[in-house]
């Protein structure tokens, strides 16, 4: 049996530079189906770029991005658009449309892609909002919400089309420890109840260890190491240990 058949996303030999800065330099990674994969790495290592490459928001200079065996980069613009319906994405600052209220934000994907009547849309939106623990906020504008609430609304919106794969770009960065925990639980619950494939970009070690089925560490444009949380904890590689324990390298200080 093909060992990669359980992989939903396969990335092969990705290379990407912005000007003279190499962000991906021969990167290979597989995302297993139905699991939570956490991509860790230092700030500015290109984790968000990697996540956006998966969904075709950023295109690599070379390499392949296979979504269930189809190369995203060989599809037409329309084909890529169709492919993106398999995905849901939660952006770093939630990226809610600030010209619409919370209800319209969450209803947006349905209004674009389904032919449901308004009352059916309302039922679905309120249901999704309840799932992320929000009630009576539909009429509020995104600017009236706290950071944690925005992320919940963003998550409700990302889940609206019942995606197979959901991408989280630093879901807990900038939140207090209690909110972080509640978002973590929300991700875990979402994973359990919808059975989807999750990819999380994070540099929050505690959350990572708690949630991950698989961890992949990005280092200088490649995957330095991938495996279970246990294998990471037991790793002898000083670069991994420094990251897990939050120690700065000597050359970083100098």
């Amino acid at each position: 049996m093909n060992p990669s058949s359980s992989a939903v996303i396969q990335m092969k030999d990705l290379r990407k530079s912005f000007g003279t800065q190499k962000v991906m330099d021969g990167l290979d990674l597989e995302i297993p189906r139905g699991k939570i994969t956490v991509i860790i790495g230092r700030s500015g290592e290109g984790k968000s770029v990697l996540l956006k490459t998966m969904i075709g928001l950023i295109f690599p200079d070379s390499g392949k991005v296979l979504i269930e065996g189809t190369d995203m980069l060989e599809l037409s613009g329309q084909g890529q658009n169709e492919m993106r319906k398999k995905f849901g994405m939660l952006f770093q600052n939630a990226a809610l449309f600030d010209s619409m209220n919370v209800f319209d934000n969450v209803a947006f994907p349905l209004r674009q892609h389904s032919h449901l009547e308004e009352d059916e849309i309302e039922v679905k939106v309120l249901d999704k909002l309840a799932k992320v623990g929000l009630k009576n906020v539909g009429h509020k504008m995104p600017s009236e919400l706290s950071g944690g609430m925005r992320k919940r609304v963003g998550l409700a919106r990302a889940l609206m089309l019942d995606p197979e794969i959901i991408l989280y770009d630093e879901p807990t960065t900038g939140l207090d420890p209690i909110l972080t925990d509640s978002i973590d639980n929300l991700i875990l619950e979402t994973q359990k109840s919808f059975g989807l494939t999750s990819v999380i970009v994070s540099h929050d070690i505690r959350s990572t260890i708690k949630m991950a089925d698989k961890i992949a560490m990005l280092y200088e444009g490649r995957i330095l190491s991938e495996g279970s949380p246990e294998s990471f904890r037991e790793s002898k590689d000083p670069r991994i240990q420094n990251f897990l324990q939050g120690k700065a390298d000597k050359d970083f200080i100098g």
């Binding site: 956006k52 928001l57 993106r84 952006f91 809610l96």
Partner: peptide
């Protein structure tokens, strides 16, 4: 980007 991610 969010629009694109929702296939719009």
């Amino acid at each position: 980007d969010a629009l694109k991610s929702m296939a719009v």
